[in-house]
Design a protein around this nucleic acid. Structure first.
Lengths: 143, 143
DNA sequence: ATCTCAATTTAGAACTATTCTAAACGACAA
DNA sequence: TTGTCGTTTAGAATAGTTCTAAATTGAGAT
């Protein structure tokens, strides 16, 4: 029996005109369930604990395909490693300087920020992302 | 004769308790004059066109020392390569989706953004950075 | 001016994340 | 069921960065 969640993931892949392979399904399912911001390495290691296996190249190919299709976000924050996030609602990020954790902040939680105005004449601003830096609730208690 | 600018750079290095070496001077001077956001590779290539030479390892060591001392900013935006910026006034960034150019946006030019409120109870927000995405004035004319 | 020594620089090796290659495989339309 | 073309694969290659251990040097002490 196919669960609701399974059908939703399959449907999202088809919508994006991506052939439905077990590897693509597994990567997208993994990211959908993951609340952190895993790297390709973490995704690869976790996936290969069980069927289906996915080679390193496939993990990268798949992540790029999902990114190009807009099904996942790829972010680079503070280091040279790509991190992936299946949360594609508009959102921002919070980085804790104590524990290093990277969290999503919904556009709502950020407060009523309006689209910033053009930084100079002729510029067209289409989107914006905010990175908040500080100390998370857990670390704040230990300081 | 020592120019004003030269003295200022030397003074900034001493302030940061960094020994004044020709290589450190050259890297900081280069970044101070550069308006783009050069990578370690670009800095290395440009510096080695003239005296003093700086080995690859020294360029990296120096950039890290300057970053740790707060004399330069290290940013990762959209790819896995570190970019450096001697502009340490509070500022944000604009990325053109057409030409890929990365530009500084002064905090003023962004508009009167106040520090975002805490995303959840217990969180302490100490700083924030905004990345604007869109089309720059030059590219906008060609679309 | 010279000495001393810890900090810095260096060339090259090593490492990590990512991309490439070319052959085998497999999803899916007909 | 078959043919096609996109996908997966292992392994090699590349790019950016970090490490290593020896040589050099800045700057305070003499």
């Amino acid at each position: 029996m196919k669960t609701e969640a399974r059908i939703k993931i399959e449907w999202r892949l088809r919508e994006a005109e991506l052939k439905l392979t077990p590897q693509r399904f597994a990567v997208l399912e993994y990211l959908t369930q993951s609340s952190g911001h895993p790297t390709a390495e973490q995704i690869s290691a976790d996936l290969n604990r069980r069927f289906p296996r996915a080679s390193r190249a496939t993990v990268y190919n798949t992540l790029h395909a999902l990114r190009d299709a807009g099904l996942v976000h790829e972010v680079y924050i503070d280091d040279a490693v790509a991190r992936y996030d299946a949360n594609i609602d508009p959102h921002h990020h919070f980085v804790c300087r104590a524990c290093g954790k990277l969290e999503d902040i919904s556009a709502d939680a950020l407060g009523a920020q309006t689209m910033p105005r053009a930084p100079a004449p002729g510029y067209r601003v289409e989107a914006f992302e905010v990175v908040l830096r500080g100390v998370c609730a857990v670390c704040a208690r230990h300081e």
